[in-house]
Simulated assay, not measured.
Amino acid sequence: MIPAEIQRIVHAGVPLAEQWGIEVLQAEAGTALCRLPERPDLLRPGGTISGPALMGLADVAMWAALLGVHEGRDESLTSQLAITFLRRPAPGAVLAEARIVKRGGRLIYGEVWLRAEGETEPAAHVTTQWVAVTPPRR
Rank of each mutant, 00 (worst) to 15 (best):
A12W: 11
A12R: 15
A12E: 15
G13K: 08
G13W: 13
G13L: 11
V14Y: 13
V14M: 15
P15H: 04
L16C: 03
L16D: 03
Q19P: 01
W20G: 05
G21F: 14
I22L: 12
E23D: 15
E23G: 03
V24T: 11
V24I: 12
L25K: 11
Q26S: 09
Q26C: 03
Q26T: 12
A27Y: 08
A29W: 00
A29V: 00
G30I: 04
G30L: 04
T31K: 14
T31L: 00
T31G: 03
L33F: 02
L33D: 02
L33I: 10
C34T: 11
C34G: 02
P37Y: 03
E38V: 00
E38K: 02
R39Q: 04
L43I: 04
R44S: 06
T48Q: 00
I49F: 11
S50E: 00
P52H: 04
A53F: 01
L54N: 08
M55E: 09
M55A: 11
M55K: 00
A58R: 10
V60M: 09
V60C: 13
A61W: 03
M62W: 09
W63S: 12
A64P: 05
A65V: 01
A65F: 08
L66Q: 11
G68A: 10
G68L: 11
E71Q: 15
E71V: 02
R73W: 01
R73P: 09
R73N: 12
R73F: 01
L77Q: 03
T78L: 01
T78D: 07
Q80R: 11
Q80D: 14
L81N: 04
L81I: 07
L81H: 08
L81Q: 11
F85Q: 05
L86W: 04
R87G: 06
R88F: 00
P89K: 05
P91W: 07
A93R: 03
L95V: 04
E97M: 11
A98D: 10
A98C: 13
I100S: 08
R103F: 03
R103K: 12
G104N: 08
